[in-house]
Every structure is written in C-alpha cells, then in structure tokens.
C-alpha cells in the first residue's frame, strides 16, 4: 500500500456533499446565463463589434480580475466555508457585506468558529445578505429618482465615506482585541506600512497583500502556540 493510500481521507458529510453539488450546478447555470447576456445581445440585435478591441479590453480586466480571484479565493474560502463561498463568489461584495454578515452571525449564534455549525450559519447569513442586496438594487433600479437625493445628501456623505472603517471597527476590533497576542504583530506591521507608504498607497495594495498578512498572522500564532505548549509541558 502506498503512503498516499494509508492517509485517512476526511469524508464530507451528506449535507456538505449536497452543498458542493448544488453549488457547482447553480454556478454553472449562472455562468451560462451571464455568457448569454452579451451573446444573445450580439445575436439578436445584430450589432457588429470590433473583436480586436473587445479582446484587448477583456485582457485588461481579465488579468486584473484573475489575480484578484486567486487571492480572494485562497483567502476567503477557508474563512467563509464552502456553502457561503459558492454564494459569495456569484453575488460579490465580499469584504463590505458577505464576510461581516457571516462573521457577525457566527458570533451571535455562539458557535465555534471553525465548526460545521459555523459553516451552516455562515451559509444562512450570506444567503440572506445576498437576497437583501438583490431586493435593494431592484428597488434602487425603479426608485432611483426618489432614493438618490436622499443617498447623495451632503449631510450623509461623511457617513457613507466612512462605511468601511465603521464596518471594520464593528467586525474587526472585537476579534483583534479578543486575540490581542496573536493579532499584535500583523496589526503593528499594517500600521507601520501605512505610516511609511501613506494611507492611500497602502489601501491600493491591501487586497493583494492579504495572503502575506495571513501568512504572517499564521506564523506568529504558531510561535505563540509553541511557546504556550512548552510552558504547559514545563509546569
């Protein structure tokens, strides 16, 4: 028997298997429906396009998106769990909606962060969040004339300008404070980089720098874990 075969493989539960099947099938259908938009528009309207320039435009956006997809997929999928990831990567708005909805719901439900229960709670939260956005954008589409003056009111502007910091304060601070030791090094590095590079420059690269920050946080947590283990053994 080879060493590979000796390893016990983790079996996915019936629910988890079903989620993967649902997820794959619905994502395939959604991809087909998305491709149908430009395809049918071209076929039915008969409007010719400049293929060279279209490909050029696609390469520009595609290469940027390609890097982003790899980084976001590797970073968010383990945190969200499979069910929530299937939904998040077809509905979007990860950092500003789906991740906070999932994380705050897991905290509210009082379940263990990496447990199967947390995965299910995250899926429920992301599904609800997706539906709310779809409904609000539908209302926005038809009620834009009424909504826009309210949303673009200069009094509210500082509020919307600071939505992300407010969101990160509500989601991030409790997590960072709770694990202050483990969070200390990555937070200090983020602060130092912001001070050296400037806020605007660091903000531009932050989504691409996520894997590095995650690696640093994992490495530092490991150092603390080993140290605590040694302390335990000695006592």
């Amino acid at each position: 028997m080879s060493t590979k075969e000796k390893k016990t493989k983790v079996e996915l539960s019936a629910y988890q298997k079903q989620i993967h099947t649902f997820g794959r099938v619905t994502n395939i259908i959604a991809v087909a429906a998305l491709i149908a938009v430009p395809l049918m528009l071209s076929l039915i309207s008969g409007i010719p396009i400049d293929l060279g320039l279209t490909v050029k435009g696609f390469i520009g956006i595609g290469s940027l998106m390609g890097v982003m997809v790899i980084v976001e997929f590797m970073s968010y999928a383990p945190i969200l769990g499979a069910g929530a990831t299937y939904l998040t990567f077809i509905t979007g708005n990860t950092m500003n909606m789906k991740l906070p909805a999932a994380k705050s719901s897991v905290r509210l439900a009082g379940v263990e962060e990496t447990s199967p229960e947390a995965e299910i709670i995250s899926t429920m939260a992301v599904a609800v969040s997706s539906l709310v956005t779809i409904i609000i954008l539908l209302v926005g589409l038809f009620g834009l004339n009424f909504l826009l003056p309210v949303l673009q009111n200069p009094v509210l502007k500082p509020g919307f300008d600071n939505l992300m910091p407010a969101l990160m304060g509500a989601m991030g601070l409790p997590v960072l404070v709770k694990s202050l030791k483990e969070a200390s090094v990555p937070v200090i590095i983020a602060i130092i980089l912001t001070l050296i590079m400037g806020y605007a420059a660091f903000s531009r690269i932050v989504s691409m720098a996520l894997p590095a920050f995650m690696a640093i946080a994992v490495a530092w947590s490991y150092v603390i874990y080993r140290r605590d283990l040694k302390k335990k053994e000695q006592s």
């Binding site: 970073s75 383990p78 945190i79 950092m95 994380k103 962060e113 990496t114 500082p158 300008d161 600071n162 992300m164 910091p165 990160m168 304060g169 989601m171 991030g172 601070l173 997590v175 960072l176 694990s179 483990e182 969070a183 990555p186 937070v187 590095i189 983020a190 602060i191 980089l193 912001t194 001070l195 806020y199 660091f202 903000s203 932050v206 720098a209 996520l210 920050f213 995650m214 690696a215 640093i216 946080a217 994992v218 530092w220 947590s221 490991y222």
Partner: peptide, 25 residues
C-alpha cells in the same frame, strides 16, 4: 484559520487606525 482571519482583519483595520491625516476613519 482563525489566525488567517486575524491577518485579514489586521490588514484592513490597521490602515484605518493609522490614517492620522484623515482621522475620520
């Protein structure tokens, strides 16, 4: 994985708390 999440939060929260030029964040 919780450590990965800490790294993610650090990367997003850090710049906001160090943004002394626009301290509204």
């Amino acid at each position: 994985i919780p450590a990965m999440f800490l790294g993610l939060m650090a990367a997003y929260v850090g710049p906001y708390i160090a943004n002394y030029k626009n301290y509204m964040t």
